Amino acid sequence: MPLPLPSPAAQQSSANLQTLLAKEIKKHRNWIPFSRFMELVLYTPQYGYYTGGSHKIGNNGDFITAPTLTPLFAQTLARQLQELLPQTAGNIYEFGAGTGQLAADLLGSISDGINRYYIIEISPELAARQKDLIQTLAPQAAQKIVHLSALPETFDGIIIGNEVLDAMPVEIIRKNEGGSFEHVGVCLDNGRFAYSAKPLHDPSLSTSASLYFPQTDYPYTSELHPQQYAFIRTLASRLKRGGMIFIDYGFDVAQYYHPQRNQGTLIGHYRHHVIHNPFDFIGLADLTAHVNFTDIAQAGTDAGLDLTGYLPQSHFLLNLGIIELLTQVGKTDSPAYIREAAAVQKLIDQHEMGELFKVIAFGKNIGIDWAGFRFGDICHKL
């Protein structure tokens, strides 16, 4: 089935971005690492996927997120936050708040327990949408919202990141048949963007690739995530008291770098279609890679945080009583219940979001027994 064509305005935006990308590549002798290409595609001001003007999330966007499926997701998460916020200054810090649905629903559920709700957002278009939605859905608590375009110097509260880590640029590394590593980047080939590999000279990337990549007698390509690691370390250094909760799709290191997963996990999302060529719909398609949760856990513990837990999203939501909240929606034969039940099924079913999506949490100077991790913790797999 052919993919939907972009509008003329979207095509022009993509063309402008491609011109900037070509200039960047030519400036660096016709080669930039894939991480730099991904950064520019996603975050170039005005033209990048997250910094442009198109709607990304929802039925009319490119993908669906858990908060936009059902308010029960936020109401369930609120139960965990109600347990944690009193141990802190009462602040929530949300990264990558998307449409603002999660913030609006959390403010609607526990506004009395929230001091300030900080949204760290680099996209002006998304920030405007977030403000409008929160004003519409939670007007009584909208004054608690503070938008930031840069990291605060300190955190005292709970940091939330739902599908944030997967949107960070990744390095692509290839191990050839001889066992040596190559750094995969992007070049111009007859005016078109193409993959291009060079010998890997970065010592830290070489060390990580040697540690993670399996022994195979065939070429093996995958991603490394130094930006995710640095991000967690930075947050940890600024967290004075509180916790960090990240919800995303990914694997532990053994699953991520399984010998059979020899083409990595990088994919694109465009109008609810998966695309495998990152050079299609440049600036109009989301580029994303799965999260290596072993690396995330290592980053947090290296920075002195307590690893609170790690488990599938289904276990986290069930531990916090999402089924109980579902029963409060209405009669089981009512349209509202049927709609919400279908959404909850998608959130917890192992063949949908329940198993692929994981929740990892860290704490500092607060209690370590969190209700969301009461049963089903799989930290031993990390």
Results as ranks from 00 to 15, higher is better:
residue 57 I to F: 00
residue 98 G to Q: 01
residue 189 D to V: 11
residue 251 F to R: 13
residue 228 Q to W: 08
residue 223 E to T: 01
residue 229 Y to E: 12
residue 261 R to P: 12
residue 346 K to T: 11
residue 73 F to A: 02
residue 335 P to Q: 03
residue 260 Q to T: 15
residue 123 S to Y: 05
residue 324 E to H: 14
residue 138 A to E: 07
residue 96 G to E: 00
residue 87 Q to R: 06
residue 76 T to S: 09
residue 249 Y to L: 09
residue 178 G to W: 11
residue 171 E to G: 08
residue 25 I to A: 03
residue 263 Q to R: 14
residue 43 Y to Q: 14
residue 299 A to H: 05
residue 151 L to H: 07
residue 369 D to V: 09
residue 41 V to M: 11
residue 182 E to T: 06
residue 319 N to W: 05
residue 211 L to Y: 11
residue 109 S to G: 09
residue 291 V to A: 12
residue 98 G to E: 00
residue 350 Q to I: 04
residue 313 Q to A: 05
residue 53 G to K: 14
residue 257 Y to G: 10
residue 280 D to W: 01
residue 15 A to H: 15
residue 229 Y to P: 08
residue 300 G to L: 07
residue 112 D to M: 02
residue 25 I to Y: 03
residue 358 K to P: 02
residue 380 H to E: 14
residue 292 N to T: 09
residue 47 Y to P: 01
residue 286 D to H: 02
residue 123 S to K: 05
residue 327 T to Q: 15
residue 364 K to W: 09
residue 123 S to M: 06
residue 250 G to F: 09
residue 237 S to T: 11
residue 63 F to M: 05
residue 279 F to A: 00
residue 213 F to V: 10
residue 302 D to S: 12
residue 320 L to I: 06
residue 252 D to N: 15
residue 81 L to Y: 04
residue 345 Q to G: 01
residue 286 D to A: 00
residue 98 G to V: 04
residue 308 T to M: 10
residue 164 V to L: 13
residue 369 D to M: 10
residue 184 V to W: 12
residue 338 I to T: 12
residue 322 I to T: 02
residue 66 A to D: 08
residue 215 Q to I: 13
residue 287 L to T: 05
residue 275 I to V: 15
residue 353 M to Y: 00
residue 285 A to C: 08
residue 363 G to V: 04
residue 313 Q to S: 06
residue 95 F to Y: 13
residue 365 N to P: 04
residue 206 S to Y: 03
residue 39 E to P: 07
residue 36 R to A: 12
residue 358 K to W: 04
residue 219 P to I: 06
residue 167 A to I: 01
residue 2 P to A: 13
residue 295 D to C: 10
residue 203 P to I: 01
residue 101 Q to A: 13
residue 101 Q to N: 05
residue 139 P to C: 02
residue 149 S to Q: 11
residue 313 Q to N: 08
residue 109 S to C: 15
residue 289 A to Y: 07
residue 363 G to H: 07
residue 254 A to C: 10
residue 339 R to T: 11
residue 143 Q to S: 15
residue 218 Y to C: 06
residue 142 A to I: 04
residue 170 V to I: 15
residue 369 D to T: 12
residue 335 P to V: 00
residue 26 K to R: 14
residue 317 L to Q: 00
residue 370 W to M: 09
residue 134 I to P: 00
residue 314 S to C: 03
residue 185 G to W: 05
residue 28 H to M: 05
residue 6 P to V: 00
residue 114 I to A: 01
residue 72 L to S: 06
residue 9 A to V: 10
residue 190 N to A: 13
residue 253 V to L: 14
residue 304 G to M: 02
residue 321 G to V: 11
residue 311 L to W: 07
residue 301 T to G: 03
residue 309 G to E: 03
residue 220 Y to Q: 05
residue 41 V to L: 15
residue 281 F to G: 05
residue 350 Q to V: 04
residue 203 P to S: 01
residue 208 S to A: 14
residue 216 T to K: 09
residue 140 Q to S: 06
residue 143 Q to N: 15
residue 362 F to K: 07
residue 347 L to Y: 00
residue 221 T to P: 06
residue 83 E to P: 03
residue 196 S to C: 14
residue 30 N to H: 13
residue 174 R to G: 08
residue 120 I to K: 02
residue 135 Q to V: 02
residue 88 T to L: 03
residue 325 L to M: 11
residue 212 Y to G: 06
residue 95 F to K: 05
residue 246 F to T: 11
residue 90 G to H: 00
residue 268 G to A: 08
residue 150 A to C: 07
residue 28 H to F: 07
residue 370 W to T: 04
residue 296 I to W: 05
residue 24 E to F: 01
residue 360 I to Q: 12
residue 199 P to D: 10
residue 24 E to S: 09
residue 87 Q to P: 01
residue 112 D to H: 07
